[in-house]
């Protein structure tokens, strides 16, 4: 199978600062592929290179079998881009935002109009079609931007931090719509620093840190490879959580001490918790949960993802 996006040794440098330090990526048709990492990991720079608005400094990059350096316009004609900050046109209505954008792709007016109505239906904004963009809520604006990214019926949709800054309800609505797109067979490429988002949406993802790829696989793979089945979170009523780390020795496969809590990685959380309590340690709070990508990231980099 040929990949829609194919990158080898991809590098992006800005005046001496290396944002992306040589990554290999392949995205297949129909999959939802994620770049997961904290701010500054190089996700957005990678997305801009894939979106053909930022020429790679080094390495090979092929998108839809074409070379972005030479065929930028032809590639962009088949991409849909939803940038990190909404850049909707404040002078236009919601519908006009979609129809004028369609014109940039050379889509005939009549088709543009019909597609705009369809897409507004899809993102559940039909009743706001003739409203100005400015007074819309963050979640609504984001949905307009997503609809705009679909106006040319793209082969690949690029979503940079699709739900950053949205309230929980708005996030779920966006996720639900993206999930529907995925079901329709649209190839999604997204960046995120939210674990739950990556787990919800991505078939496959790479964990990025400092411009490099730290690990690659499906969310389940990564959790199996780099974490345990369950995690016990203990909070002690003291300034220094590390004082308890020694006393927890041997209870779990791995112990991580964070400034505000101690994490025990184990396949049987309840047993580990019982044993900790058996040692007469009295945490102020205790919680057993399933392992997540957050734990994968912590294991790979020694840091938490959202600070």
């Amino acid at each position: 199978m040929t990949s829609l996006i194919h990158a080898r040794g991809l590098v992006k440098r800005f005046d001496g600062f290396t944002a992306v330090a040589g990554i290999d990526v392949d995205v297949q048709a129909g999959e939802a592929f994620g770049f997961l990492g904290p701010n500054g990991a190089g996700k957005s720079s990678t997305m801009r290179m894939i979106g053909c608005v930022s020429p790679p400094t080094e390495g090979t990059l092929e998108i839809l079998g074409l070379d972005p350096r030479r065929d930028g316009p032809a590639i962009r004609a088949r991409l849909g881009v939803c940038p990190q900050t909404d850049n909707l046109d404040p002078e236009l209505t919601v519908r006009e935002n979609l129809t004028t954008y369609a014109r940039f792709f050379g889509i005939p007016r009549r088709t543009a109009r019909a597609r705009a109505d369809e897409l507004l239906e899809f993102v559940q904004l039909t009743e706001r079609a003739d409203a100005r963009v400015e007074p819309l809520s963050g979640g609504m604006k984001r949905r307009v931007t997503i609809a705009r990214a679909l106006v040319n019926e793209p082969d690949i949709v690029l979503l940079d931090e699709p739900t950053t800054g949205l309230d929980p309800q708005a996030r779920h609505l966006v996720w639900e719509r993206l999930f529907r797109l995925k079901k329709q067979g649209v190839t999604l490429v997204l960046t995120t620093h939210y674990m739950d988002e990556a787990e919800q949406l991505c078939d496959r993802l790479v964990v990025m840190d400092g411009g490099r790829i730290a690990a690659e696989g499906s969310p389940r793979d990564l959790i199996e490879r780099y974490s345990t089945r369950e995690v016990v979170e203990l909070r002690f009523a003291t300034e220094d959580q590390s004082a308890y780390a020694d006393k927890l020795d041997g209870i779990a496969e791995r112990v991580e001490v964070l400034p505000d809590r101690v994490l025990l990685y184990t396949d049987d959380g309840d047993a580990a918790l019982a044993e900790a309590q058996g040692r007469a340690l009295a945490p102020a709070s205790a919680l057993v949960r399933r392992s997540s990508l957050e734990d994968v990231f912590l294991h790979l980099t020694g840091r938490t993802l959202v600070d």
């Binding site: 608005v53 004609a77 940038p83 046109d89 954008y101 050379g106």
Partner: peptide, 10 residues
């Protein structure tokens, strides 16, 4: 940032 949106098109 209107043109950033436009430049994502051909």
């Amino acid at each position: 940032r209107l043109y950033e949106g436009v430049l994502a098109t051909p």
